[in-house]
Design a protein around this nucleic acid. Structure first.
Lengths: 244, 244
DNA sequence: ATGGCAGACTGAGCCAGATCAGCATGCGCG
DNA sequence: CGCGCATGCTGATCTGGCTCAGTCTGCCAT
C-alpha cells in the first residue's frame, strides 16, 4: 500500500472503517476551505442557524452551554482531528457555543457537501456515525465524572483523558503534554469553582501524582493516578476496523 | 399519501428525513426479532462483546455506568421508539449497562443487518446519525444540569424533559404522565442521594410546581417550572425534515 | 393474619466544595 | 516606564447536599 499523507480526521475514521482510495479522496475533498480563528472569539453560538461544521486542523477549542444564571458548563474540548458542530448542523440551529481556546485553523464543511458525501459514499456515513458515538462516549464519561466522582478523582480523570487523546494524534506522550487551558476553563469543564481547581491541582502535585503548571501537564505516577481516577481508557480506543 | 402504521422508531426518523416507501420498509425489516425482558435484569452489561442493538417497542429502560466505589450514574432513560446500545455495537464492546425499568418489549437489531441497511439505503444512515445526535444532545443537557444546576432546578428540568419526550410519542400530555421510576433511580440519574430527591420532590410539591407520587407526575404550574429549571426544549425538537 | 421487604419519608450532624476577599505575578500596551 | 488586566494562589466562612439512623406504609407470599 502506498503511504499517502492524509488528514488527522481521515486517519481517525480509517481506524474504524477500512477506507478505500476513493473514500479517502472524498474525505479530503471536505477539507476545501481552510479558515482561521482568534482565541476567545466564539466561532459558533447557541441559536445560530444554518451553521457550517468544521474539521479542526490545529489549536484547541471548547464547546459549552450558557445557563441563565450567567455560569457556563464546558461540554468538551476538541483537539486537532476532531469534528466540530455536527449536532448544530443536523439540527439546523446550534445548541451550544464553540470557542477557540487558542488560535485555531479549521476546514469549513458545508451541510450540503456533508450530506452529499454520505449519499455517494455510504460507508463514510457509518464512519462519521462511529466518530460521533466516540464523542458521545466522552460526554458520557464526563457526565459520570461530574455526577459521581469527587473533585480530585474528576480532575485526575480529566488529565488522563487528555493525555490519552493527545497521544493518539501525536501531540504528547503518556507522561507529558502541553495544555493551553486556564484554571477557569478547567473549572467550567469540571463543574467546580476555579478556586477549588487550584486547590485540587496543588493536592495532586503534593501527592506526587501530576503537575499542571505553566501550560504543561506532567504525570509523575501514572499507575496511582489511574487508580485514583478509576480511569478505563477503553472508551477512547478501538479494536481496529469494524467495517472491512 | 396512503397512511400506513409504522413503528414509533420509523416515525421518529421520518421527522428528520422524508423517507420513501422503500426506506420505510427497509426500516420495518429491522424489526424482525421481537424480544421480551423482565424488569431489573440487565439486558446488556459493561464489557460484553458483540452485543446486538435494540429498538424499544414498549416499557422503559435505563442506561448506566458502574463506578469502582459501587455507586452508579444513570446516563439516560429510554422510552418507546428509542434506539438502544448503538454505541455498544459500533465499539464492539459495550461501554455501559442497560437495565429494564419495567417489563420491556424490544426488537433485536443485528450489527450486520444494521450496517447492510446503511450501505443499501444511505439516507437511513444519515437519519440514524441524526437520532444519535439527538440522544447526544440529551446527554449534554444532562451534563450541564449536573454540572451547573442545583438539585431543585435539576429535578425540575428532569421532569420537564420527560414530559416533552413522552408527549412526542403519545404517552402523556404536557401536564401529566405516568412514570415508573423509584426515587432511588431518580437519584442515580440526577447525581443526588435518594434522601435528597425525596426532599426536593416535597419542595416542588409544596411550591405548587409539580407532584410526583404513586407513579404519576403532574405539573401544576408549567410556566414557573420552566422558569425555575431554565428549560429550553429546542434540543428535543426538530423543525421538520432536513433531507428532502 | 402476618411476616418480610421495598419504597417513601424524616431528623440530626457533618463535610466537600462554594463564595468572598485579597495578594502576587507576569505580560501587553500607551 | 508604569498602568491595567488576566491568571494563579491563599485564608476564612458559609451552605447544599450527604450520611447515618431510623419510622411508616403498602404489598406481596406464605
Amino acid at each position: 500500500m502506498i503511504s499517502v499523507q492524509h488528514s488527522p480526521f481521515a486517519r481517525k475514521l480509517g481506524a474504524f472503517v477500512a477506507l478505500s482510495g476513493e473514500e479517502f479522496s472524498a474525505l479530503d475533498l471536505l477539507h476545501g476551505r481552510r479558515k482561521r480563528f482568534a482565541a476567545g472569539r466564539d466561532m459558533v453560538h447557541q441559536g445560530q442557524v444554518n451553521q457550517s461544521a468544521y474539521i479542526l486542523a490545529s489549536g484547541w477549542v471548547c464547546s459549552y452551554k450558557l445557563l441563565s444564571g450567567g455560569t457556563r458548563q464546558i461540554i468538551d474540548f476538541q483537539i486537532p482531528g476532531d469534528f466540530l458542530g455536527l449536532r448544530s448542523v443536523l439540527f439546523r440551529t446550534a445548541d451550544h457555543n464553540i470557542e477557540p481556546v487558542t488560535r485555531v485553523e479549521a476546514s469549513e464543511v458545508l451541510v450540503s457537501d456533508l450530506l452529499d458525501t454520505f449519499t455517494r459514499t455510504p460507508r463514510l456515513a457509518t464512519a462519521v456515525l462511529w466518530a460521533a458515538s466516540r464523542d458521545e462516549a466522552m460526554v458520557v464519561e464526563h457526565l459520570v465524572g461530574i455526577g459521581r466522582r469527587d473533585a480530585k478523582e474528576r480532575t485526575a480523570h480529566f488529565l488522563l483523558e487528555l493525555s490519552a487523546r493527545l497521544k493518539l494524534v501525536g501531540l504528547g506522550t503518556a507522561h507529558e503534554y502541553s495544555c493551553p487551558l486556564s484554571q477557569y476553563m478547567m473549572a467550567d469543564a469540571l463543574g467546580l469553582s476555579s478556586v477549588h481547581v487550584n486547590r485540587v491541582l496543588r493536592e495532586l502535585r503534593e501527592d506526587g501524582l501530576a503537575t499542571f503548571q505553566h501550560g504543561k501537564v506532567t504525570i509523575h505516577d501514572l499507575d496511582r493516578l489511574v487508580l485514583l481516577a478509576d480511569f478505563d481508557k477503553s472508551y477512547l480506543d478501538h479494536d481496529g476496523p469494524l467495517l472491512k
